[in-house]
Design a protein around this nucleic acid. Sequence first.
DNA 1: AAGCCGGGGTG
DNA 2: CACCCAGGCTT
Length: 358
Amino acid sequence: MTAATFADRLLRWQRQHGRHDLPWQNTRDAYRIWLAEIMLQQTQVASVIPYYQRFLAHFPELARLAAAPLEEVMPLWSGLGYYARVRNLHRCAQEIMSRHGGEFPRDPEAIARLPGIGRSTANAIAVFAFGIRAPILDGNVKRVLCRSHGVDGFPGTAAVEQRLWQLAEELLPARAADCSRYIQAQMDLGATLCTRGKPACADCPLNDICIARRDGRVNELPQPRPRKALPQRSLRVLLLHDGERWLFERRPPHGIWGGLLSLPEVAADEDVQQKLDALACAAAELQALAPLRHSFTHFHLTLQPLLAAVKPLPQLAESGRYRWLTPMELADAALPTPIRKIVQEALATAATVTQGCD
DNA sequence: AAGCCGGGGTG
DNA sequence: CACCCAGGCTT
């Protein structure tokens, strides 16, 4: 009788304590698994579930997604973040239709060549949809492996990451049929027991072989990212309404909030009147609303909203770039979260002002 | 190797 | 506030 392997322990644990009720778990439909995996990139399960359900209700199959214009897809991602994912998702769907005959490729290397899909996501799709034997390396797996095998160094560096991929390969169960449950077990363990904050080592199936636990280093591994001070930026945004509709501006396809609708911005070195002129709007009075602070991965942003009732001049034709939206239409518009918050605030303020005038 | 790309949860 | 999450792409 040989000792239980790493994979054995996880597989045994998964049967009793793993998750079994996630919406994308009870399917082998590559389209659904792919959609879930893209949404789950750098995004927690609880945040994804409602977006996943809503997306699938709008686009139940890949062909429908590929045929839809991007503007119809973006709103379904509004609020989820990392909007390059939805642009890549859409491109990906079109590539699968045009270059793969509408069938999702089965080879992990072919999957990884699709836009927005790297090695880990490609392997996850291949494992869950096609039962292929391959490792993944997401945040959960990295944390579990760093602790169980005592891997030092920040996992973002190439050397550490290479070591982790090597470990992930070596520890894979021998049978391809066990792989999907094994991968699921790794992620479940990382999400529920081997968490960043207070890991529940007492309940962990690996606690008697865990190097970090043996050495009293559970709280030191994995080693955190070397931190640096984030720059501080500020931005004025215009809340312009004509009494019924509000003015929005489409952001360029790349960069922050790429492709989403946002509010017209007044650059730091720009005059508000100058911007109003550019927008062909005449405003009687500007009202500063409460500033909103928002943090990104790489900088902090303070948004200063400026509210004004305007008379739109005919020069500003509604186009792909500028759109006037009613409060009703806002619900289905592709807005980033901080902008949505500001607009909600403004709607409340404008309603109050209007009532006060009556 | 480092920067860019969101929003939310956690301690 | 720091840190991280079912990462990948660009420079």
